[in-house]
Design a protein around this nucleic acid. Structure first.
Lengths: 192, 192
DNA sequence: CCCTTTTAATCAAAGGTTTGATAATCAGAC
DNA sequence: GTCTGATTATCAAACCTTTGATTAAAAGGG
Protein backbone atom coordinates (compact mmCIF):
# COMPACT_ATOMS: atom_id res chain seq x y z
CA UNK A 1 0.00 0.00 0.00
CA UNK A 2 3.04 2.29 -0.27
CA UNK A 3 2.77 3.64 3.25
CA UNK A 4 4.91 2.96 6.29
CA UNK A 5 3.66 3.83 9.75
CA UNK A 6 5.86 4.63 12.75
CA UNK A 7 4.68 5.91 16.14
CA UNK A 8 5.16 9.52 15.13
CA UNK A 9 5.17 9.82 11.35
CA UNK A 10 3.49 8.50 8.25
CA UNK A 11 5.71 8.16 5.21
CA UNK A 12 3.91 7.88 1.92
CA UNK A 13 5.89 6.76 -1.08
CA UNK A 14 4.29 8.25 -4.18
CA UNK A 15 5.36 6.27 -7.22
CA UNK A 16 4.90 8.41 -10.31
CA UNK A 17 1.13 8.17 -10.43
CA UNK A 18 -0.17 6.23 -7.49
CA UNK A 19 -3.25 7.56 -5.75
CA UNK A 20 -5.39 5.21 -3.77
CA UNK A 21 -8.75 4.87 -5.50
CA UNK A 22 -10.51 5.97 -2.35
CA UNK A 23 -8.88 9.41 -2.63
CA UNK A 24 -9.90 9.89 -6.26
CA UNK A 25 -12.54 12.38 -7.24
CA UNK A 26 -14.69 12.67 -10.32
CA UNK A 27 -12.21 15.15 -11.72
CA UNK A 28 -8.86 13.70 -10.60
CA UNK A 29 -9.93 10.33 -11.96
CA UNK A 30 -9.33 11.60 -15.50
CA UNK A 31 -5.59 11.71 -14.97
CA UNK A 32 -5.52 8.47 -13.07
CA UNK A 33 -7.59 6.67 -15.72
CA UNK A 34 -5.45 7.77 -18.63
CA UNK A 35 -2.23 6.60 -16.98
CA UNK A 36 -3.75 3.34 -15.84
CA UNK A 37 -5.24 2.63 -19.26
CA UNK A 38 -1.83 3.14 -20.86
CA UNK A 39 -0.37 0.48 -18.58
CA UNK A 40 -3.30 -1.85 -18.98
CA UNK A 41 -3.68 -1.45 -22.73
CA UNK A 42 -0.53 -0.12 -24.41
CA UNK A 43 -2.31 0.35 -27.74
CA UNK A 44 -4.66 2.98 -26.31
CA UNK A 45 -4.85 6.43 -27.91
CA UNK A 46 -4.16 8.27 -24.66
CA UNK A 47 -4.43 11.79 -26.06
CA UNK A 48 -7.86 11.13 -27.52
CA UNK A 49 -8.92 9.41 -24.33
CA UNK A 50 -7.82 12.32 -22.17
CA UNK A 51 -9.48 14.83 -24.43
CA UNK A 52 -12.89 13.17 -24.60
CA UNK A 53 -12.90 12.15 -20.94
CA UNK A 54 -11.98 15.69 -19.90
CA UNK A 55 -14.62 17.19 -22.17
CA UNK A 56 -17.42 14.94 -20.97
CA UNK A 57 -16.61 15.38 -17.29
CA UNK A 58 -16.22 19.13 -17.48
CA UNK A 59 -19.55 19.45 -19.25
CA UNK A 60 -21.17 17.15 -16.73
CA UNK A 61 -19.97 19.31 -13.85
CA UNK A 62 -21.10 22.55 -15.42
CA UNK A 63 -24.51 21.18 -16.33
CA UNK A 64 -25.02 19.62 -12.91
CA UNK A 65 -24.21 22.95 -11.32
CA UNK A 66 -26.59 24.88 -13.56
CA UNK A 67 -29.42 22.42 -13.15
CA UNK A 68 -29.14 21.97 -9.40
CA UNK A 69 -28.35 25.54 -8.44
CA UNK A 70 -30.47 27.44 -10.95
CA UNK A 71 -33.24 25.40 -12.54
CA UNK A 72 -34.42 22.76 -10.08
CA UNK A 73 -34.97 25.34 -7.34
CA UNK A 74 -37.25 27.12 -9.82
CA UNK A 75 -39.18 23.96 -10.64
CA UNK A 76 -37.55 23.19 -13.98
CA UNK A 77 -35.43 20.23 -15.06
CA UNK A 78 -32.49 20.68 -17.41
CA UNK A 79 -34.40 19.27 -20.41
CA UNK A 80 -37.43 21.37 -19.51
CA UNK A 81 -35.24 24.47 -19.50
CA UNK A 82 -33.77 23.57 -22.88
CA UNK A 83 -37.21 23.35 -24.44
CA UNK A 84 -38.61 26.63 -23.18
CA UNK A 85 -35.26 28.28 -23.94
CA UNK A 86 -35.61 27.17 -27.56
CA UNK A 87 -39.22 28.34 -27.73
CA UNK A 88 -38.26 31.69 -26.25
CA UNK A 89 -35.53 32.44 -28.79
CA UNK A 90 -36.87 30.77 -31.92
CA UNK A 91 -40.53 31.59 -31.31
CA UNK A 92 -43.54 29.33 -31.82
CA UNK A 93 -42.63 26.38 -34.01
CA UNK A 94 -43.42 22.80 -34.90
CA UNK A 95 -42.59 20.17 -32.33
CA UNK A 96 -40.28 18.46 -34.76
CA UNK A 97 -38.11 21.56 -34.92
CA UNK A 98 -38.17 21.99 -31.17
CA UNK A 99 -36.91 18.46 -30.72
CA UNK A 100 -34.09 19.06 -33.17
CA UNK A 101 -32.81 22.33 -31.76
CA UNK A 102 -33.21 21.38 -28.13
CA UNK A 103 -31.41 18.09 -28.68
CA UNK A 104 -33.89 15.33 -27.95
CA UNK A 105 -35.77 12.68 -29.84
CA UNK A 106 -39.36 13.28 -30.85
CA UNK A 107 -40.46 10.61 -28.38
CA UNK A 108 -38.55 12.20 -25.51
CA UNK A 109 -40.04 15.58 -26.31
CA UNK A 110 -43.53 14.07 -26.36
CA UNK A 111 -43.12 12.87 -22.78
CA UNK A 112 -41.50 16.09 -21.66
CA UNK A 113 -44.31 18.20 -23.14
CA UNK A 114 -46.82 16.46 -20.89
CA UNK A 115 -45.08 17.94 -17.88
CA UNK A 116 -44.52 21.38 -19.37
CA UNK A 117 -48.12 21.55 -20.53
CA UNK A 118 -49.44 20.37 -17.16
CA UNK A 119 -47.34 23.06 -15.48
CA UNK A 120 -48.85 25.64 -17.81
CA UNK A 121 -45.60 26.68 -19.46
CA UNK A 122 -46.34 25.73 -23.06
CA UNK A 123 -49.32 25.12 -25.35
CA UNK A 124 -49.72 22.27 -27.83
CA UNK A 125 -51.84 23.03 -30.89
CA UNK A 126 -52.50 21.11 -34.07
CA UNK A 127 -50.87 22.81 -37.07
CA UNK A 128 -53.36 24.12 -39.64
CA UNK A 129 -51.50 23.13 -42.80
CA UNK A 130 -50.56 19.63 -41.67
CA UNK A 131 -52.90 17.85 -39.33
CA UNK A 132 -50.15 15.53 -38.16
CA UNK A 133 -47.92 18.33 -36.94
CA UNK A 134 -47.93 20.06 -33.56
CA UNK A 135 -47.40 23.76 -33.10
CA UNK A 136 -45.74 24.68 -29.80
CA UNK A 137 -45.72 28.03 -28.08
CA UNK A 138 -44.94 29.54 -24.70
CA UNK A 139 -47.71 30.69 -22.39
CA UNK A 140 -47.34 33.91 -20.42
CA UNK A 141 -46.17 31.81 -17.48
CA UNK A 142 -43.68 30.05 -19.72
CA UNK A 143 -42.34 33.36 -20.91
CA UNK A 144 -41.97 34.56 -17.35
CA UNK A 145 -40.22 31.36 -16.34
CA UNK A 146 -37.64 31.50 -19.09
CA UNK A 147 -36.98 35.19 -18.58
CA UNK A 148 -36.22 34.82 -14.90
CA UNK A 149 -34.60 31.43 -15.30
CA UNK A 150 -32.29 32.52 -18.07
CA UNK A 151 -31.12 35.61 -16.22
CA UNK A 152 -30.02 33.46 -13.27
CA UNK A 153 -28.61 30.88 -15.67
CA UNK A 154 -26.52 33.48 -17.46
CA UNK A 155 -25.18 34.91 -14.19
CA UNK A 156 -23.94 31.44 -13.35
CA UNK A 157 -22.43 31.06 -16.83
CA UNK A 158 -20.55 34.31 -16.18
CA UNK A 159 -19.12 32.92 -12.96
CA UNK A 160 -17.83 29.87 -14.79
CA UNK A 161 -16.49 31.84 -17.73
CA UNK A 162 -14.55 34.12 -15.39
CA UNK A 163 -12.01 31.32 -14.97
CA UNK A 164 -10.70 32.00 -18.49
CA UNK A 165 -9.24 35.12 -20.05
CA UNK A 166 -11.30 36.64 -22.88
CA UNK A 167 -8.86 35.35 -25.51
CA UNK A 168 -8.91 31.92 -23.92
CA UNK A 169 -12.69 31.83 -24.06
CA UNK A 170 -12.54 32.68 -27.74
CA UNK A 171 -9.92 30.03 -28.43
CA UNK A 172 -11.92 27.52 -26.43
CA UNK A 173 -15.02 28.14 -28.54
CA UNK A 174 -12.96 27.92 -31.70
CA UNK A 175 -11.63 24.53 -30.69
CA UNK A 176 -15.07 23.20 -29.82
CA UNK A 177 -16.33 24.38 -33.21
CA UNK A 178 -13.44 22.74 -34.98
CA UNK A 179 -14.10 19.55 -33.09
CA UNK A 180 -17.74 19.52 -34.14
CA UNK A 181 -16.88 20.43 -37.70
CA UNK A 182 -14.94 17.19 -37.81
CA UNK A 183 -17.92 15.16 -36.65
CA UNK A 184 -19.03 14.57 -40.20
CA UNK A 185 -15.65 13.08 -41.03
CA UNK A 186 -15.93 10.95 -37.92
CA UNK A 187 -19.29 9.77 -39.26
CA UNK A 188 -20.85 10.45 -35.90
CA UNK A 189 -24.31 9.20 -35.07
CA UNK A 190 -26.90 11.87 -34.25
CA UNK A 191 -30.30 11.85 -32.67
CA UNK A 192 -33.44 11.04 -34.67
CA UNK B 1 -39.44 36.77 -44.64
CA UNK B 2 -36.51 38.40 -46.43
CA UNK B 3 -36.98 36.54 -49.71
CA UNK B 4 -38.16 37.80 -53.09
CA UNK B 5 -39.35 35.37 -55.75
CA UNK B 6 -39.24 36.01 -59.51
CA UNK B 7 -40.06 33.48 -62.25
CA UNK B 8 -36.46 32.40 -62.58
CA UNK B 9 -34.53 33.32 -59.44
CA UNK B 10 -34.85 33.34 -55.68
CA UNK B 11 -33.09 36.19 -53.98
CA UNK B 12 -32.48 35.68 -50.31
CA UNK B 13 -31.49 38.69 -48.32
CA UNK B 14 -29.49 37.48 -45.37
CA UNK B 15 -29.59 40.13 -42.71
CA UNK B 16 -26.64 39.55 -40.48
CA UNK B 17 -28.17 36.67 -38.55
CA UNK B 18 -31.52 35.61 -39.96
CA UNK B 19 -32.19 31.90 -40.29
CA UNK B 20 -35.71 30.58 -40.15
CA UNK B 21 -36.09 28.45 -37.04
CA UNK B 22 -37.16 25.46 -39.12
CA UNK B 23 -33.69 25.37 -40.73
CA UNK B 24 -31.86 25.46 -37.41
CA UNK B 25 -30.02 22.44 -36.12
CA UNK B 26 -28.89 21.49 -32.65
CA UNK B 27 -25.47 22.92 -33.46
CA UNK B 28 -26.32 26.00 -35.52
CA UNK B 29 -28.79 27.05 -32.85
CA UNK B 30 -25.88 28.09 -30.62
CA UNK B 31 -25.04 31.00 -32.86
CA UNK B 32 -28.64 31.92 -33.45
CA UNK B 33 -29.43 31.82 -29.74
CA UNK B 34 -26.55 34.04 -28.70
CA UNK B 35 -27.45 36.75 -31.23
CA UNK B 36 -31.12 36.57 -30.44
CA UNK B 37 -30.50 36.72 -26.68
CA UNK B 38 -28.40 39.86 -27.16
CA UNK B 39 -31.33 41.54 -28.91
CA UNK B 40 -33.88 40.26 -26.45
CA UNK B 41 -31.86 40.92 -23.31
CA UNK B 42 -29.10 43.51 -23.83
CA UNK B 43 -27.61 42.85 -20.40
CA UNK B 44 -26.71 39.27 -21.28
CA UNK B 45 -23.11 38.07 -20.94
CA UNK B 46 -22.92 36.81 -24.51
CA UNK B 47 -19.38 35.45 -24.32
CA UNK B 48 -20.16 33.33 -21.30
CA UNK B 49 -23.41 32.20 -22.87
CA UNK B 50 -21.72 31.14 -26.07
CA UNK B 51 -18.98 29.35 -24.21
CA UNK B 52 -21.20 27.28 -21.92
CA UNK B 53 -23.79 26.58 -24.61
CA UNK B 54 -21.08 25.44 -27.00
CA UNK B 55 -19.45 23.28 -24.35
CA UNK B 56 -22.64 21.55 -23.31
CA UNK B 57 -23.82 20.89 -26.84
CA UNK B 58 -20.48 19.60 -28.06
CA UNK B 59 -20.28 17.21 -25.12
CA UNK B 60 -23.84 16.10 -25.69
CA UNK B 61 -23.08 15.24 -29.31
CA UNK B 62 -19.92 13.33 -28.49
CA UNK B 63 -21.57 11.37 -25.70
CA UNK B 64 -24.63 10.58 -27.77
CA UNK B 65 -22.39 9.27 -30.52
CA UNK B 66 -20.36 7.12 -28.15
CA UNK B 67 -23.37 5.71 -26.37
CA UNK B 68 -25.46 4.99 -29.44
CA UNK B 69 -22.75 3.74 -31.72
CA UNK B 70 -20.52 1.89 -29.26
CA UNK B 71 -22.20 0.99 -26.00
CA UNK B 72 -25.90 0.43 -26.60
CA UNK B 73 -25.22 -2.06 -29.41
CA UNK B 74 -23.15 -3.99 -26.86
CA UNK B 75 -25.89 -3.94 -24.27
CA UNK B 76 -24.53 -1.16 -22.07
CA UNK B 77 -25.92 2.26 -21.25
CA UNK B 78 -23.62 5.25 -20.85
CA UNK B 79 -23.89 5.23 -17.03
CA UNK B 80 -23.37 1.47 -17.00
CA UNK B 81 -20.22 1.91 -19.04
CA UNK B 82 -18.94 4.60 -16.68
CA UNK B 83 -19.30 2.31 -13.70
CA UNK B 84 -17.53 -0.74 -15.10
CA UNK B 85 -14.91 1.57 -16.60
CA UNK B 86 -14.17 2.90 -13.11
CA UNK B 87 -14.09 -0.60 -11.62
CA UNK B 88 -11.75 -1.74 -14.36
CA UNK B 89 -9.18 0.99 -13.81
CA UNK B 90 -9.41 1.59 -10.07
CA UNK B 91 -10.01 -2.02 -9.10
CA UNK B 92 -12.48 -3.39 -6.54
CA UNK B 93 -13.64 -0.63 -4.24
CA UNK B 94 -16.41 0.60 -2.00
CA UNK B 95 -19.63 1.67 -3.66
CA UNK B 96 -19.27 5.12 -2.20
CA UNK B 97 -16.01 5.61 -4.09
CA UNK B 98 -17.47 4.20 -7.29
CA UNK B 99 -20.30 6.71 -7.13
CA UNK B 100 -17.85 9.57 -6.65
CA UNK B 101 -15.46 8.75 -9.47
CA UNK B 102 -18.10 7.69 -11.96
CA UNK B 103 -20.10 10.84 -11.29
CA UNK B 104 -23.42 9.79 -9.85
CA UNK B 105 -25.24 10.00 -6.55
CA UNK B 106 -25.21 7.04 -4.22
CA UNK B 107 -28.93 6.53 -4.86
CA UNK B 108 -28.47 6.52 -8.63
CA UNK B 109 -25.66 4.00 -8.33
CA UNK B 110 -27.84 1.78 -6.17
CA UNK B 111 -30.44 1.53 -8.91
CA UNK B 112 -27.84 1.08 -11.63
CA UNK B 113 -26.13 -1.75 -9.75
CA UNK B 114 -29.34 -3.76 -9.83
CA UNK B 115 -29.10 -3.89 -13.61
CA UNK B 116 -25.35 -4.50 -13.75
CA UNK B 117 -25.62 -7.25 -11.15
CA UNK B 118 -28.56 -8.87 -12.90
CA UNK B 119 -26.57 -8.85 -16.13
CA UNK B 120 -23.70 -10.56 -14.35
CA UNK B 121 -21.17 -7.77 -14.87
CA UNK B 122 -20.45 -6.85 -11.25
CA UNK B 123 -20.66 -8.35 -7.76
CA UNK B 124 -21.93 -6.63 -4.64
CA UNK B 125 -20.40 -7.83 -1.37
CA UNK B 126 -20.67 -6.53 2.18
CA UNK B 127 -17.36 -5.00 3.31
CA UNK B 128 -15.68 -6.90 6.16
CA UNK B 129 -14.47 -3.90 8.21
CA UNK B 130 -17.70 -1.91 7.96
CA UNK B 131 -20.94 -3.80 7.72
CA UNK B 132 -22.73 -0.81 6.23
CA UNK B 133 -20.37 -0.55 3.26
CA UNK B 134 -20.56 -2.38 -0.06
CA UNK B 135 -17.54 -3.73 -1.87
CA UNK B 136 -17.92 -3.77 -5.66
CA UNK B 137 -15.94 -5.80 -8.17
CA UNK B 138 -16.10 -6.85 -11.80
CA UNK B 139 -16.99 -10.41 -12.75
CA UNK B 140 -15.13 -12.16 -15.55
CA UNK B 141 -17.98 -11.16 -17.84
CA UNK B 142 -17.71 -7.59 -16.62
CA UNK B 143 -14.00 -7.58 -17.32
CA UNK B 144 -14.59 -8.93 -20.82
CA UNK B 145 -17.29 -6.34 -21.45
CA UNK B 146 -15.15 -3.37 -20.47
CA UNK B 147 -12.12 -4.63 -22.36
CA UNK B 148 -13.99 -5.00 -25.64
CA UNK B 149 -16.19 -2.00 -24.98
CA UNK B 150 -13.34 0.32 -24.16
CA UNK B 151 -11.33 -0.65 -27.22
CA UNK B 152 -14.24 0.30 -29.47
CA UNK B 153 -14.87 3.39 -27.36
CA UNK B 154 -11.27 4.53 -27.71
CA UNK B 155 -11.29 4.01 -31.48
CA UNK B 156 -14.24 6.35 -31.67
CA UNK B 157 -12.49 8.86 -29.40
CA UNK B 158 -9.58 8.78 -31.85
CA UNK B 159 -11.89 9.57 -34.73
CA UNK B 160 -13.22 12.62 -32.88
CA UNK B 161 -9.80 13.76 -31.72
CA UNK B 162 -8.49 13.63 -35.27
CA UNK B 163 -10.34 16.88 -35.95
CA UNK B 164 -7.75 18.79 -33.91
CA UNK B 165 -4.00 19.11 -34.30
CA UNK B 166 -1.95 17.58 -31.47
CA UNK B 167 -1.11 21.02 -30.07
CA UNK B 168 -4.75 22.02 -30.26
CA UNK B 169 -5.76 18.93 -28.32
CA UNK B 170 -3.28 19.84 -25.64
CA UNK B 171 -4.46 23.43 -25.47
CA UNK B 172 -8.06 22.26 -25.38
CA UNK B 173 -7.37 20.04 -22.38
CA UNK B 174 -5.49 22.85 -20.69
CA UNK B 175 -8.45 25.18 -21.08
CA UNK B 176 -10.89 22.61 -19.75
CA UNK B 177 -8.65 22.09 -16.74
CA UNK B 178 -8.39 25.79 -16.12
CA UNK B 179 -12.15 26.08 -16.37
CA UNK B 180 -12.63 23.38 -13.77
CA UNK B 181 -9.95 24.81 -11.53
CA UNK B 182 -12.11 27.90 -11.34
CA UNK B 183 -15.16 25.95 -10.25
CA UNK B 184 -14.28 26.44 -6.61
CA UNK B 185 -14.23 30.18 -7.09
CA UNK B 186 -17.55 29.92 -8.87
CA UNK B 187 -18.83 28.07 -5.77
CA UNK B 188 -20.24 25.37 -8.01
CA UNK B 189 -22.61 22.78 -6.65
CA UNK B 190 -21.45 19.18 -6.91
CA UNK B 191 -23.14 15.85 -6.61
CA UNK B 192 -23.71 14.21 -3.22
C1' DC C 1 -21.86 1.62 28.63
C1' DC C 2 -25.64 4.48 26.65
C1' DC C 3 -27.26 8.02 23.80
C1' DT C 4 -26.87 11.10 19.98
C1' DT C 5 -25.02 12.09 15.62
C1' DT C 6 -23.10 10.78 11.46
C1' DT C 7 -22.53 7.74 7.65
C1' DA C 8 -23.72 3.90 4.05
C1' DA C 9 -27.09 2.06 1.50
C1' DT C 10 -31.69 1.53 -0.08
C1' DC C 11 -36.42 2.77 -1.09
C1' DA C 12 -40.23 5.54 -3.11
C1' DA C 13 -42.22 8.77 -6.20
C1' DA C 14 -41.83 11.72 -10.08
C1' DG C 15 -39.49 12.67 -14.23
C1' DG C 16 -36.72 12.09 -18.55
C1' DT C 17 -34.51 8.87 -22.13
C1' DT C 18 -34.09 4.95 -25.23
C1' DT C 19 -35.76 1.69 -28.63
C1' DG C 20 -39.35 -0.24 -30.95
C1' DA C 21 -44.33 -0.40 -32.08
C1' DT C 22 -48.73 1.87 -33.48
C1' DA C 23 -52.12 5.31 -35.41
C1' DA C 24 -53.00 9.12 -38.34
C1' DT C 25 -51.96 11.95 -42.15
C1' DC C 26 -49.65 13.35 -46.23
C1' DA C 27 -47.32 12.80 -50.79
C1' DG C 28 -46.19 10.60 -54.91
C1' DA C 29 -46.89 6.83 -58.45
C1' DC C 30 -49.88 4.56 -61.10
C1' DG D 1 -58.88 8.47 -57.21
C1' DT D 2 -56.39 4.70 -54.91
C1' DC D 3 -52.56 2.47 -53.12
C1' DT D 4 -48.05 2.54 -51.17
C1' DG D 5 -44.47 4.48 -48.66
C1' DA D 6 -42.84 8.29 -45.86
C1' DT D 7 -43.67 11.41 -42.09
C1' DT D 8 -45.61 13.14 -37.40
C1' DA D 9 -46.79 12.13 -33.09
C1' DT D 10 -47.72 9.02 -29.35
C1' DC D 11 -47.40 4.90 -26.58
C1' DA D 12 -45.14 1.12 -23.95
C1' DA D 13 -41.49 -1.08 -21.51
C1' DA D 14 -37.07 -0.83 -19.51
C1' DC D 15 -33.76 2.12 -17.48
C1' DC D 16 -31.40 6.00 -15.14
C1' DT D 17 -31.71 10.27 -12.13
C1' DT D 18 -33.40 13.41 -8.62
C1' DT D 19 -34.99 14.58 -4.03
C1' DG D 20 -36.43 13.17 0.20
C1' DA D 21 -37.45 9.52 3.38
C1' DT D 22 -35.96 5.17 6.01
C1' DT D 23 -32.97 1.45 7.94
C1' DA D 24 -28.75 -0.20 9.78
C1' DA D 25 -24.29 0.30 11.48
C1' DA D 26 -20.44 2.94 13.26
C1' DA D 27 -18.35 6.84 15.94
C1' DG D 28 -18.00 9.97 19.60
C1' DG D 29 -19.28 12.29 24.00
C1' DG D 30 -20.79 12.00 28.44
Amino acid sequence: MNSVRTPSTTLVIVTHNALPPSDLTFWSFVDYAVRKAEQELPSVDADAMRMILTLSRAASMVIYDLESSVHRPRGLTWPGFRVIFALWLAGPMEAKTTAEISGMSRAALSALLNTLERDGLIVRERASHDRRALQLSLTEAGYGAILGGFRAHNRRESAWAAALEPEERQEFVRLLNKLMAGSTDAKAKFRN
